[in-house]
Design a binder for these strands. Structure first.
Length: 89
DNA sequence: TCTGAGCGG
């Protein structure tokens, strides 16, 4: 289950994100998307969990959860864009 | 350092 996490604090990192979701189950990958040009956080990220059941629990438990002063929102991620395409959606 | 809707490379 791939999840999209938005409204993150700009100083929330991958590890913080991972810890939050690990409270609900096994996290296979967690990353905050950083701006490729500046290297700073873009304020959103992606978390992938093996178990769909645990992922749904994590969404329930973490959606609108206040962290670092911001209420982050968690939802099911869309399909990834093709890497070779430079489409901006 | 800076910002506040967004779906990554």
């Amino acid at each position: 289950m791939n999840m999209y996490v938005s409204n993150l604090s700009f100083h929330t990192g991958d590890d913080e994100l991972r810890k939050l979701f690990e409270q609900f189950g096994i996290v296979s990958s967690a990353k905050v998307i950083t701006d490729r040009d500046t290297g700073r956080s873009r304020g959103f990220g992606f978390v992938e969990m093996k178990s769909d059941d645990e992922a749904n629990k994590a969404i329930k438990g973490l959606n609108n959860m206040e962290v670092e002063g911001r209420a982050m929102s968690v939802s099911i991620a869309r399909e990834k864009a093709p890497r070779s395409d430079n489409k901006r959606w």
